[in-house]
Write a protein that binds this DNA or RNA. Structure first.
Length: 1001
RNA sequence: GCUCGGGUGGUGGAACUGGUAGACACGCAGGACUUAAAAUCCUGUGCCCGUCAAAGGCGUGCGGGUUCGAUUCCCGCCCCGAGUACCA
């Protein structure tokens, strides 16, 4: 039989499903290997050809590992809570669960026909109560934990309570809110429950607090920082504003240092690690207190006078060594001391500046980065190291949210301070001997200090240590590490998410009982916020804990379920634990994770955080969840275009015609009855800029092409006068274009109203233009895997996606080359068959050449797969099949091995041939990978390239048994060399055995 | 601005630690088979010069360097993509 891919693929997909071929064994004899894909959000549009790229790669790897004797876990599921289903629900009233269910069915059908080796028995869906029961459960563990800095791990909140009862707050070193109480054990015990709970909330790893959030009014929800791009929502592009709200937060900052350190222990792409490092944003520096000179509480607020907030301004700096160069202080306009510091004379100025700064949006502030602005408060501070009196300013280049919201300005070393000082005529003091500060700040760390009191003459390292020691001694500063990363907001004012397992009593949050889990999402009449602005869950009638207490009305953010889902796959049906101890001990962590880099600072950071927490409380074993990670590149769209010729009609007898506008009315109702004319890509430029060509085309249209139509209207065609207007570029569906050639029949079917359109081209073929764009419906460049599978089969699609280029590289999708891969598979099939398609395989002993071909590919594929270079192994398969075809090799001893090594790439065709070869059906997936024997690759001779002065001239076959000198003599004595040597004797001869001979003349 | 990728034929890409640049495939051109089409097969295909051929010259973004030899290493620059941004 000919290669009947459709039947073969269907047959084996059913076989795998029926026999649960890819279910990992429970016995633990084999080593485990866990291959994970980032599970998809099931969107309504279904899969396009870019989605499976990573899945195909991970599937090849999973199948390869099975052949290599590993017990492979390779699961799949759905991240099925999300905004699109909810938006659709708001528009149509349909429950998001129904939409989601339908979308999942589509995804499943599409995934199934690609032939993945997933163990579907372990499927998870984040929106299913069986699953989110455990997401809620983990939330409860976080609520019941605090971070003990001394132990450097999370601990049970009960332990903290016990400490409070015995020792009060003394001796606690926790990651917590800024304003915690100090109390003795007795004072603690005297507190009522409400006060105790209020205090404990400041320590819990998930906690409520008033936070400034990114509020998106159009979406009716709060967004995480990584969901906001340039002041607009990433999804939908709606404006986002800053708003204060009570919000659940996750104390991820407690793990900042461990998240940073952990990066050095995992095998991830360097750019991705770098993104996480930047996001965490560690800076090592110092806090320094500046006393305010003559602080006198200038505002009239009595309470502040009685209970002054502070007489000092604390700043954070990473260059404490430059402290002697401090010539002024700058506070963020929002800084709490600004009002008190402002003198009556400066009040109007400061007020105006603050108002102006407030008005500026995030976006403007960014665009404005270069302009210097600020205002003097009228107050002064004292530099602790030299007693200098310096001015205190406010400016919006200092951010309230970072460090202490105040900086010591060192204009000689910091460019922003430098510009500010120049602009407002403030002093600039050089502090390092080699500093060059005529035109800009010089942040050098080289050289020795000057103008710097007790550190004069020291180096950077010495000075930093000396200054910190001195400040600590004076009690006016200390070393301090600062992080850019903020605690993560953990609430969305949306319906389609996990309910938070919390109810409120007297305004304080309490966890519901564990046995009441899952807290199921209630039904609501509408998926919109209430009239009073409450989240949609407030609409649920009678939705109260134990019938009385109000539940939390916000739901968890999109990243909640995905922050731990890989553990659920280990034991997907357990209803007493999120995964059994046994399963976690065996599978431990993910060995290979494949997905897109867009999750760098979202999912991948939160997952690491939850994993570390789960480890701290003893539920999991690994410190890091994903040992090795690969980012597959994005598949971009490749759009095709046709070029419509823009013409106008003029009366037949008009010779000259310049003012087309005047005649628009005349031809308007006529022109649309005339067929559209499209010109082929290669004539576009010519018709624009070659007036002779244009005239010829015009004549052609008038006298031949549209002769009859034009006679009817007594008009003639005139091509638009301006070259840039002569054609309009129009997207055409890439699916009716092959190798950039337009299929006319398909075109008329696609656009029936254009059945009489005309095409002008050079060689009868209409060549389309192309451009790389995002893949999207509106650009008609979406390629659907279903269509390709119908036409070429899944095996071809799988191999072609890999053949496209390196996995990690982004690339445009182009179906042009797919024929080559299809031809390859047919050629492979033909190796096993005679001309009449009878299956014929011989039992003869293979020849040396045949074995060489085989072992070359065994080795090459092994190497390629291990370094995820799938594109090169596809080429190697082609080479091997080409060689074996030339050798007319149909020997079982060769072909059976070839079937095994090709099977991860093209599993269906290989299963079929495996059975035709007489093997038990379904055993291919666990067959042993053939053993590479280097002996078959040993050569007696090598065709040395002989180069003269580094330029290759000829090739000579030389026995590899020759040593260097023998080889050199052989080359120099060879007749073909005489022409090049021309009687001269070479200055030098370099012989690299088995590689090259280079002669220097 | 900073950080990280990347620039190789008409196209996608290959060349693993410095050793024959352009593997493999697409496309294109020519040919075979066929009534025809599809399928299949064969030949050629980096550019320039050359009637075929031979021979030669130029070629991995640009300019320099190290080396017997550089797509690969070093220095300087240009361009494209991604991330990030007044982080003190």
């Amino acid at each position: 039989m000919d290669y009947q891919f459709a039947a073969i693929e269907k047959k084996w997909q059913r076989f795998w499903a029926d026999h649960q071929t890819f279910k990992p064994e429970d016995s633990t004899a084999k080593p485990k290997y866990y291959v994970l894909d980032m599970f998809p959000y099931p969107s309504g549009a279904g899969l396009h050809v870019g989605h499976p790229l990573g899945y195909i790669a991970s599937d090849i790897f999973a199948r390869y590992k099975r052949l290599k004797g590993f017990n492979v876990l390779h699961p799949m599921g759905y991240d099925s809570f999300g905004l699109p289903a909810e938006q659709y629900a708001i528009q149509t009233g349909q429950h998001p669960a129904i939409t989601t269910e339908a979308n999942i069915a589509t995804y499943r059908r599409q995934l199934d026909q690609i032939g993945f080796s997933f163990d579907w028995g372990r499927e998870v869906r984040t929106s299913s109560p069986d699953f989110y029961k455990w997401t809620q459960w983990i939330f409860m563990q976080l609520f019941n934990s605090w971070y003990n800095k001394d132990a450097d791990k999370a601990e049970a909140i009960d332990k903290l309570v016990k400490h409070f009862e015995q020792h009060g707050s003394a001796g606690i070193n926790a990651v917590c809110d800024e304003e915690v109480l100090t109390f003795t054990a007795d004072e603690w015990k005297a507190l009522d429950d409400r006060a105790k709970q209020t205090e404990l909330l400041k320590y819990r790893l998930t906690y409520l607090r008033e936070s400034t959030v990114n509020w998106c009014a159009a979406l009716g929800t709060v967004l995480a920082n990584d969901e906001v791009k340039d002041g607009f929502s990433e999804r939908g592009g709606f404006p986002v504003e800053q708003k204060k709200m009570m919000q659940w937060s996750m104390r991820i900052t407690a793990y900042a240092e461990r998240l940073l350190q952990g990066l050095d222990t995992i095998d991830w792409p360097e750019p991705l690690k770098e993104m996480q490092r930047n996001w965490i944003g560690k800076s090592v520096g110092a806090l320094v207190k500046f006393r305010i000179s003559d602080f006198q509480f200038r505002n009239s607020d009595k309470s502040e006078i009685e209970n002054p907030k502070s007489e000092i301004i604390e700043v954070f700096t990473t260059r404490v060594d430059t402290i002697f160069g401090t010539t002024f202080l700058v506070l963020a306009p929002e800084h709490e001391l600004v009002t008190s510091l402002t003198t009556p004379e400066q009040k109007a100025n400061i007020k105006a500046y603050i108002a102006q700064a407030k008005k500026k949006s995030e976006l403007e502030r960014m665009a404005d980065a270069k302009t210097v602005s600020g205002a003097f408060t009228g107050s002064y501070a004292i530099n602790p190291v030299n007693g200098e009196k310096i001015q205190i300013w406010i400016a919006d280049y200092v951010l309230a949210g970072y460090g202490t919201g105040a900086v010591m300005a060192v204009p000689s070393g910091d460019q922003r301070d430098y510009l500010f000082a120049k602009h407002y005529n403030l002093p600039i003091i050089p502090i390092i001997d080699i500093q060059k500060i005529e035109t800009e700040a010089d942040p050098t760390k080289e050289g020795r200090y000057i103008n710097s009191g007790f550190i004069n003459g020291l180096t950077y390292k010495e000075a930093t240590v000396a200054v910190i020691a001195k400040l600590e001694e004076m009690g006016t500063g200390k070393a301090k590490v600062n992080f850019r990363m903020r605690d993560a907001i953990f609430g969305r004012q949306r319906y389609w998410g996990e309910p938070v397992p919390v109810y409120f009593k007297e305004g304080l949050p309490y966890l519901i009982d564990e046995k009441d889990l899952p807290l199921v999402l209630p039904e609501v009449d509408k998926y919109l916020p209430t009239e009073s602005g409450e989240p949609p869950l407030a609409r649920a009638s009678n939705w109260r804990y134990k019938g009385t207490e109000a539940y939390e009305h916000s739901t968890m953010p999109g990243w909640a379920g995905s922050s731990w889902y890989w553990y659920r796959y280990m034991d997907a049906h357990n209803d007493s634990e999120f995964a059994s101890k046994k399963a976690i001990e065996y599978w431990k962590d993910v060995d290979l994770y494949i997905g897109g880099s867009e999750h760098a600072t979202g999912h991948l950071l939160y997952s690491r955080f939850w994993n570390k927490f789960l480890k701290d409380i003893g539920l999991v074993i690994a410190e890091e969840p994903f040992k090795k990670l690969i980012n597959q590149g994005h598949i971009q769209g490749r759009s095709n275009f046709v070029y419509r010729l823009n013409y106008t009609l003029i009366p037949k007898n008009a010779d000259k015609f310049e003012k087309i506008e005047d005649e628009v009315n005349w031809h308007d109702d006529v022109i649309f009855k005339l067929p559209l004319i499209f010109i082929s890509f290669e004539v576009v430029e010519r018709i624009k800029y070659n007036s002779q060509y244009r005239t010829d085309t015009e004549n052609f249209i008038n006298n031949e092409y549209l002769k009859d139509e034009l006679n009817k209207y007594e008009g003639k065609v005139l091509l638009t006068l301006k070259p840039e207007n002569i054609v309009s570029k129009i997207h055409v569906d890439v699916n009716i274009v092959e190798n950039d050639v337009l299929d006319f029949t398909a075109f008329t079917k696609w656009r029936p109203e254009l059945h009489n359109a005309g095409f002008i081209s050079d060689g009868g073929k209409y060549i389309c233009g192309w451009e790389i764009e995002k893949m999207s419906k509106s650009k008609f460049n979406v390629v659907n895997p279903d269509d390709l599978i119908v036409r070429y089969g899944a095996d071809t699609l799988r191999m072609y996606e890999m053949f496209l280029g390196p996995l990690e590289q982004s690339k445009p999708w182009n179906t042009n080359g797919i024929e080559g891969v299809f031809k390859f598979l047919r050629k492979f099939w033909r190796l096993f068959h005679d001309d009449a398609w009878n299956f014929i395989v011989s039992g003869e002993e293979p020849t040396k050449v045949e074995l060489k071909s085989l072992h070359k590919i065994i080795h090459k594929v092994e190497e390629d797969v291990e370094r995820f270079s799938f594109n090169t192994s596809v080429s190697s398969f082609m080479i091997a099949v080409n060689e074996l075809t030339d050798l007319k090799c149909n020997k079982r001893a060769v072909l059976q091995n070839l079937v095994i090594i090709l099977s991860p790439y093209a599993p269906h065709i290989c299963e079929e041939l495996w059975v035709l070869l007489g093997n038990e059906p379904g055993t291919l997936s666990l067959a042993p990978y053939p053993k590479f024997n280097p002996a078959y690759l040993v050569e007696d001779e090598f065709a040395y390239p002989i180069s003269i002065n580094g330029k290759t001239k000829i090739n000579l076959n030389i026995p590899l048994s020759f040593d260097l000198k023998e080889t050199e003599n052989f080359v120099l004595a060879h007749a073909d060399m005489q022409r090049y040597l021309d009687g001269k004797s070479p200055k030098k001869v370099i012989v690299v055995k088995g590689r090259i001979v280079n002669i220097v003349l």
